[in-house]
Computed example of a mutant assay.
Amino acid sequence: MPYEVQGVVSRAKGEPVSLETVVVPDPGPGEAVVNVQACGVCHTDLHYREGGINDEFPFLLGHEAAGVVEAVGEGVTDLEPGDYVILNWRAVCGTCRACKRGKPWYCFSTFNAAQPMTLADGTKLSPALGVGAFLEKTLVHSGQCTKVNREAEPAVAGLLGCGVMAGLGAAINTGAVTRGDSVAVIGCGGVGDAAIAGAKLAGATTIVAIDTDDRKLAWAKDFGATHTLNSRGLSEEQVVEAMQDATNSFGPDVVIDAVGRPETWRQAFYGRDLAGTVVLVGVPTPDMRLNDLPLIDFFSRGGSLKSSWYGDCLPSRDFPMLVDLYLQGRLPLDKFVTERIGVDGVEQAFERMHHGDVLRSVVTF
């Protein structure tokens, strides 16, 4: 029998979200209904509200979630009611060309639930990143559920579902940071600080945090930054020079751009060491362009220029490992949780996010 719960819905571009009745169907083949216990308020949710992802309104927002499986559909054999899970938005298919090449983190045919969740009048909802978790129960594909140690608090564990995983993975998976490396991270919000935490976990000895907000730079030090730079008003050349000054004049081995703007990418490109790595994890807007970058500079500097999709993570591999590291006291995931709020507080959380007052607001049920 379908469930009726209250969920956060974005009906039109730029308009405040509303709390509305959402109908969640019983799980069909390959699907699961999850009792959501906590869900982080991610910048991607705000992008949906602002029409920055697509125009398939109305959206059911929320996707950084943890909870307990309520029911599973036909054919689901690796989940059962009562399992404690983190939701993910890249349930790998196992059959596409990336999966067959042994690189499932690049899966080109990921799964979502086949059935729609709807408003009370039958209007179909577009769930954010195929999840939709600002509500007490949600319907997902079973492959979007990753079982983890239930000792991890849901408000903390759920953050691995998107932004924190993106940053950690940008450092550990995409950037392949290892012992003794030097790293710079441009942009010290939730994703950037996660990249800093990941670089520290991987053994980086020098970690340069770059931002235009002193509050964010203070947070970055809490996650492991050894050097900080407020780049407000500085030229590209000054930022590049500061990165090099912090790394014996060479430049960092890995520079992670967690902002995703042409000017920050150029800082990363020119600030890294020769044959160093640039990782783009901040998401650009479609109108952004790289202009007047000499092709000879690509050749003469060598190295790697990478984009990081969801931290190049494989949820079944990475989520349980990172939760265990958190429970061992080696990964400070709890520091990302700035506040816990009710499901009726999402619009206000967007405002605090816009002003840079929080790393993560987390809706708890």
Rank of each mutant, 00 (worst) to 15 (best):
E263Y: 03
V148D: 12
V279A: 04
P81E: 11
F111M: 05
V240T: 09
G251C: 04
W309Q: 09
A120E: 11
E20I: 04
A204S: 03
I210K: 01
S182D: 07
A204N: 05
W219G: 05
L333R: 05
P81G: 08
P284G: 08
V9R: 01
L234M: 09
G203S: 03
E236W: 01
K124R: 15
F108E: 04
G192M: 09
R340G: 08
H354N: 10
N112G: 07
V183Y: 07
T146R: 02
E50L: 00
G251R: 02
V337K: 03
G75P: 11
E351S: 14
R232M: 00
A176E: 15
S249A: 12
K221H: 02
S182H: 10
L139C: 06
R215I: 10
Y106L: 15
C162T: 03
V281Y: 10
V323Y: 14
E339Y: 11
R101T: 11
A202P: 13
T205L: 06
R317Q: 13
V255K: 09
L201D: 01
A220I: 09
W309L: 12
P16E: 04
E153R: 14
T21S: 08
P286M: 05
L135N: 13
Q144C: 14
V343S: 04
G282T: 11
M165D: 02
C42G: 07
V208Y: 11
Y84P: 11
A220P: 14
L359G: 06
L129M: 15
G189T: 08
P315V: 10
C42P: 10
L333T: 07
E80P: 04
D273M: 11
Q244E: 03
P16Q: 06
V191N: 02
C107Y: 13
V279D: 03
N54Y: 02
N35L: 06
I207S: 10
P286R: 03
G14H: 01
F57L: 01
D324W: 06
G251L: 02
G233T: 00
V92W: 13
A184Y: 14
L322D: 03
S126D: 04
G167N: 12
C188G: 08
D193C: 15
R261L: 13
L325A: 11
S231G: 01
V33K: 02
F269L: 11
T118G: 00
A155N: 13
G187Y: 05
L274C: 03
P27I: 03
V23A: 01
V72T: 15
A133N: 08
K147W: 12
E136S: 15
A155I: 09
G51D: 04
P116E: 00
R340K: 15
H63S: 00
Q267M: 15
Q144F: 13
L160Q: 09
M243D: 02
V76E: 02
L325F: 12
L125K: 00
P332W: 10
I296D: 03
V140I: 15
G167K: 12
R272F: 14
S249Q: 15
L19Q: 00
G94Q: 08
